[in-house]
Design a protein around this nucleic acid. Structure first.
Lengths: 225, 225
DNA sequence: TCCAAATAAATTGGATCCAATCGTAGCTAT
DNA sequence: ATAGCTACGATTGGATCCAATTTATTTGGA
């Protein structure tokens, strides 16, 4: 029994993201509670969290359903996170970057460059790249010790991943993804340099561009947690 | 008895924003439930919502407390909303603006111009200006029928207002606020023109600048609802 | 045959009860 | 006197019960 409520939220979120509950499907409290082996109360709390996160949506007056995201919606959500991370980077640069974070970001960039250095890119490379970008993301978030921007990012972090798989139409787009990876790598390097030089405006501009590299962004910039 | 749960959330949020519960003050379920005349259950749900919104924060392992915002935090949150509204405006322009929304935005601009047309600006003018800007904001949000950006904005909408009053140090800054009002008016006009001409990049740039006119932004751009 | 109204079933919201856990205060022993 | 342990109070989390509302089904009439 994963009686901790945050575990229930995580389990439910995973089921939604994994497609166990289809987009648009209505979610009743009793079946979910029975499926998780708990009472209705923690499920109601979890539903409230997920509704607030935007993964569940009210249909009619009382019912809740899994929110449906179109590919355009996913792109919007990705851009939301993009501009928020851009803003976070700018504010971080404005208030001064601590040396430790600077090192972490530098390492992320070096490792990322090593991964996408060659022309060919395997599935494993994409995984490694995602991991590096997750660390980059985590460093950005951790550096905001006041948690204002970090929370704003976190509040919109999971949205793109509800139906992220549904936008991967055909596997042959891998080559195009490779191109985008190189673009993202370039952007990260430029952003880091701008951060080191304290060029805040340039940081923000670059992060904005970074957010617009396309739908594959969600594969390049996995959320931490 | 405002037994609807959303009413309880609203009442609680109002109490927090009004300072009835001081920042940093711990909130227990039973006293709040008794104060609102309801049982613990709806209060727990409301606490979950408010925690998710960022108005409440966990202290220790189980306790919840009113989140404390420094003036810098408020400014960060305002900038968050600024870039999100800028993004929304850009995406709206990209996908095409429906004529009805166009009219609403146009009316908002004309009324706003009439309000800040003169040199002097009374308290009533500030209130009217806030109302016009709320309509502008609402039009932006309503136009996003897919609700992706609108929800992202809504999720970060209330944050700046938790301790907004605490950043209004002295009343003599009204003159400076007047100047900012004129700046905001100018920006709205430029944004609308860019929207009409489909200059999406310019829209975003302008809205970004709009978000940076200063701390008084929260007085100029009140959230709806 | 189709629509509407009424009734029944299902589901949600709220209240209360019980258990588990956290914090604190008091007591004891060194 | 202080440090550590214990026990009690307070508070949160979970389960169950009850009421209210919504939705579906059935039956009646047009």
């Amino acid at each position: 029994m994963t009686s901790d409520n945050s575990s229930i939220v995580a389990a439910l979120r995973k089921r939604i993201i994994d497609g166990h509950y289809a987009p648009g499907e209505r979610l009743a409290e009793i079946p979910v509670a029975e499926a998780l082996g708990v009472s209705r109360t923690p499920v109601r709390l979890a539903f409230r969290t997920l509704e607030q996160e935007g993964l569940l949506q009210r249909v009619g007056k009382r019912a809740l359903a899994v929110r449906v995201f179109s590919p355009a919606d996913v792109q919007c959500a990705i851009e939301v996170r993009g501009v928020l991370e851009g803003l976070a980077a700018r504010l971080l640069a404005e208030r001064g970057l601590d040396p430790k974070t600077r090192v972490v970001l530098h390492d992320c960039l070096r490792e990322g460059e090593a991964i996408v250095g060659g022309e060919q890119l395997s599935e494993a490379d994409i995984g490694a790249w995602s991991e590096v970008n997750a660390r980059f993301h985590a460093a950005i978030v951790d550096a905001d010790e006041r948690r204002v921007i970090a929370d704003a990012i976190a509040r919109n972090n999971h949205l793109p991943f509800a139906s992220a798989d549904s936008i991967i139409i055909d596997r042959s787009e891998l080559e195009q993804a490779h191109q985008r990876l190189r673009m993202a790598q370039l952007h990260h390097r430029l952003v880091f340099n701008a951060l080191e030089n304290g060029e805040a405006a340039r940081v923000e501009m670059l992060m904005r561009e970074h957010a617009q590299i396309g739908l594959r962004y969600d594969k390049l910039f996995k959320p931490v947690e």
